[in-house]
Simulated assay, not measured.
Amino acid sequence: MSLKNSTTTADYIDFDRASNVASKLLKEPKTVLIGKYIIIAMNTGLRCSDILALTCEQLKQPSVTITEGKTEKKKTFAVNDAIRAIVPADATGGLFITQKGGIISIQHLNRLLKDAFAKESKTLNISSHSLRKSFGRRVFFNNGESEKALVYLSDLFNHSSIAVTRKYLGIRQDELNDIYLNL
């Protein structure tokens, strides 16, 4: 579903599709960095800048508390098995260090994501923010598409209301599209 020309610019990627792409990318040394990014992004719902600042030491803990760059609010998230599996036991320091020794830029990361999701990029606006939305959509569907899920997501995303979260996830538009498609 494309949300181009609406107030949100990034489209979500199907969670299972993103998982499959990440698994393939993790197997190749040249693409392992983007594979790790996908796994962490779709399992935490964090913004790109917050993910890039994470360290191996943090992700070896049962939970991580960060101060979000955009909102400057504290956020705590549990480190699940999918994330734990991609952090080598002996690894230290930043996870997203390039060959030149710096942290990968968001612009370069977005180019890598467009390449990784080339099929989707033909019709969708894919960016680092897409995986945050994928996380949100997964939480929403796993919790029965309930208002309760939207309340949780609104809190997780630091949105001002569940109406903002609903619009952010493109839920209302999906429902309207279903009406037309099921006539």
Rank of each mutant, 00 (worst) to 15 (best):
K4M: 11
K4D: 10
S6W: 10
S6D: 08
T7W: 05
T7P: 01
T8Q: 14
T8V: 15
T8R: 15
T9P: 04
A10V: 06
D11P: 00
I13W: 02
I13S: 03
D14Y: 09
F15L: 04
D16M: 12
N20Q: 15
V21K: 03
V21S: 00
S23M: 08
K24Y: 10
E28S: 12
K30H: 13
T31H: 10
T31Q: 08
T31P: 02
V32F: 06
L33E: 02
I34Y: 09
G35E: 06
G35I: 03
K36V: 00
K36N: 00
Y37M: 01
Y37V: 03
I39N: 00
I39Y: 07
N43W: 14
G45T: 03
S49K: 15
D50Y: 08
I51A: 01
I51M: 06
L52C: 07
A53Y: 14
A53R: 14
L54K: 07
T55M: 13
C56G: 07
E57A: 06
E57R: 13
E57V: 12
P62T: 04
S63E: 14
S63T: 09
V64W: 10
T65S: 07
I66H: 08
T67V: 15
K70I: 09
K73T: 02
K73P: 01
K74I: 13
K75Y: 14
T76R: 14
T76H: 14
V79I: 07
N80D: 09
N80Y: 11
D81S: 14
A82K: 13
A82F: 12
A82P: 03
I83F: 06
I83A: 00
A85N: 15
A85Q: 13
I86Q: 05
A89Q: 09
A91L: 09
T92S: 11
T92N: 11
G94S: 13
L95V: 01
F96C: 00
I97K: 10
T98A: 11
Q99L: 15
K100M: 06
G101K: 07
G101S: 03
I103Y: 00
I103A: 00
I103Q: 00
S105I: 05
S105P: 04
I106K: 08
R111S: 10
L113G: 01
D115H: 11
A116S: 06
A116L: 06
K119I: 10
K119W: 12
E120C: 02
E120T: 05
K122S: 02
T123D: 10
T123N: 11
L124I: 03
L124P: 04
N125R: 15
N125D: 12
I126S: 01
S128Q: 07
K133C: 01
G136C: 04
F141N: 07
G144T: 04
G144Y: 15
G144P: 02
E147W: 12
E147G: 02
L150V: 04
V151D: 14
L153K: 06
S154Y: 13
N158M: 15
S161A: 09
I162C: 03
A163G: 09
A163P: 01
A163D: 14
T165H: 08
T165W: 08
Y168T: 10
I171H: 08
R172G: 06
Q173S: 11
E175Q: 13
N177C: 14
N177K: 14
N177S: 14
I179L: 09
L181Q: 13
L183A: 12
L183F: 13
L183N: 13
